[in-house]
Design a binder for these strands. Sequence first.
DNA 1: CGTCTAATTAGAAGTGTATCTAATTAGATC
DNA 2: GATCTAATTAGATACACTTCTAATTAGACG
Lengths: 193, 193
Amino acid sequence: MSEQDLTTLVQFFKALANESRLKLVGALAQQERSVEELASILELKEPTVSHHLSKLKELQLVHMRAEGNTHYYYLDLDALQAMQKATLTATEITPPVQEDVWETKVLHSFVENDIIKEISASRKKRRIILKWLVQKFELERLYPEQELNQIIKPIHSDTATLRRELVGYNMMKRENSIYQRVPESDWRMDSNH
Amino acid sequence: MSEQDLTTLVQFFKALANESRLKLVGALAQQERSVEELASILELKEPTVSHHLSKLKELQLVHMRAEGNTHYYYLDLDALQAMQKATLTATEITPPVQEDVWETKVLHSFVENDIIKEISASRKKRRIILKWLVQKFELERLYPEQELNQIIKPIHSDTATLRRELVGYNMMKRENSIYQRVPESDWRMDSNH
DNA sequence: CGTCTAATTAGAAGTGTATCTAATTAGATC
DNA sequence: GATCTAATTAGATACACTTCTAATTAGACG
């Protein structure tokens, strides 16, 4: 959903998010009517009705036909139904991209120039940082603790914590002080974290 | 459209008539998300997001699932689509009755106890009053001007004007000072008035 | 049990909206 | 052209809404 579509949708909802305007649409659905007539039906003053009609007209939901002094307003059924269809598809299909705005944002705030500035105390954020960190290791290869530390060290001084957390989040497994990266599919849905 | 339906519809439109809330719906259409995550995506503070979510929750458009401290919100797609269908039928079928609120209102303000208080200067209103007045006469019968006056007199003193107007609006026709009522189908669509 | 995290609630500031009265415009009528 | 009618525009008031910061609640963890 583009920025343009979004504001158009908001405008549409705003136009109908009002009892008086909704009643206007209802009254005009039956037949065209003059401003005076609408004011009488809704029990509002004419300037008020005029104001609401101008809002509906901006969005092309109604049009006006002048006959002498009298202004007859009528509904644009096509425009109305087009907008309604737009609301359907907008919420069904929904924005396609942007998926990982959140992760990107978290990473930017905790990692800079390949250096972890701070290990977030929040589990969800820590998980995102570790997910980034574990990409530094190859999948098939075995890493002795010594080597693991050497890789982590320039990224963050607290190698012990990161080592422990990587294992804790099941992103790496350890056997006799030899570490190996775990495929993402094995920890992705890990609901413990 | 009942009063209840109308306010429900207004509530629904109001709920979506806001950029932030529309974005929330968009973000939740993909998957459930925590408040913190949503705040990050929309670039708003958490209390603000919380506030918007509570509005959506009131209308049952979203629901919440707590997991520890974290509150995951997710969309109620059924509720959403149900509301969208409701908007379609509401504007297509439209209010059935109420048709002549306007005429009734005009009559009430100019006629009281079978007496015309004032002959409106407005053409449209005058037409409504005359439409009411002409019902006092039978269709087949012929009325000499004398008798016509006697019938009109107790309703309004200015018999001359009303007589002239009835003929002018083609609601009665005159021949040699004998008057006869014209069937409504013959003057109903008379666009001169 | 005290501390930390995630969320909500309370309260405040600024903006927007609905409605009204009064003034203005524009068409029709005498 | 003066007057009347229908509508719009201008300006004012009152209320609602969005967003923020600060304070509070409730769950998790050492």
